[in-house]
């Protein structure tokens, strides 16, 4: 479902990604670890079409980024560091707006179903500016899966959430993976990543240096991964 080969990227002359290969199967849940500056966010933004790879091939859901970026966008859902929600619009209006961008039909029914699914049906007509961080994050997930994307990309979705909100988010992500979506999760929270994922990848200075089944990854390997980044 995700097929990335030899992707390179640099920012302001500094190499960020140096030949990344990455495959995620349909319905698979993969967690991506790495120290700060390893290139995790850059990689995810590239998959979400927010950045161009300098070299290499990115194929998502069968669509090549270089050939048909619009078709690729239609099969990807992305949750980044920002919620990308309009504070002055209500929860429902936010979803409705994004529904029209993605051409989701019938929009009303789909938006209501999603609010139900993320547990925000009661706050449907409230403006997002009054939402707690956890509620905003759940609505951001709803925004990202509005068009039933085959691939879901998540960049640190748990940051800023308290225990309860994080647990609610976990339940939501579990359900998403179970429904057959491929999920790529970037996180600092190693325990949570291992608990959620089928497979674990480690990124260090722009390269994939670690690949294990979620159950088989050792504490030493992970410690090395984060130490490697600090040494740079």
């Amino acid at each position: 479902m995700i097929d990335v080969r030899g992707v390179e990227q640099s920012y302001a002359g500094k190499p960020v990604l140096r030949g990344v290969d990455l495959q995620v199967a349909a319905g698979e849940f993969v967690a991506l670890f790495g120290a700060n500056g390893a290139g995790k966010t850059t990689l995810l933004r590239m998959l979400a079409t927010l950045a161009r790879p300098a070299r290499g091939r990115v194929v998502l859901g069968g669509f090549d980024l270089a050939v048909d970026p619009q078709a690729l966008r239609a099969v990807v859902g992305f949750v980044g560091h920002h919620t990308m929600l309009y504070p002055e619009l209500t929860a429902f209006e936010n979803l409705q707006f994004y529904a029209s961008l993605y051409g989701v039909e019938p929009a009303r029914a789909r938006c209501d179903a999603l609010l139900e699914q993320v547990g925000l049906q009661r706050q449907r007509a409230e403006r997002v500016r009054y939402f707690s961080r956890g509620m905003q994050q759940r609505l951001a997930i709803a925004r990202a899966i509005l068009h039933s994307p085959r691939v879901l990309l998540l960049d640190e979705p748990h940051s800023g959430l308290d225990q309860i909100a994080a647990a609610q988010l976990d339940a939501l992500l579990h359900a998403e993976a179970a429904s057959g979506r491929s999920v790529l999760l970037v996180t600092h929270d190693v325990q949570r990543g291992i608990a959620l994922a089928d497979r674990v990848l480690g990124l260090d200075r722009g390269r994939v240096v670690l690949e294990r089944a979620a159950g088989a990854v050792s504490a030493t390997e992970l410690a090395e991964l984060y130490a490697g980044g600090n040494g740079a």
């Binding site: 309009y86 619009l89 707006f97 029209s100 961008l101 051409g103 019938p106 429904s179």
Partner: peptide
């Protein structure tokens, strides 16, 4: 859960949505 079909939306509808969103926010 019913899979919503993601069609390629028409340009005018998108422009309308953008305008509506900006105006409402404002």
């Amino acid at each position: 859960m019913r899979a919503a079909m993601a069609r390629k939306p028409r340009m005018l509808r998108v422009i309308g949505a953008l305008l509506w969103k900006d105006l409402l926010s404002e």
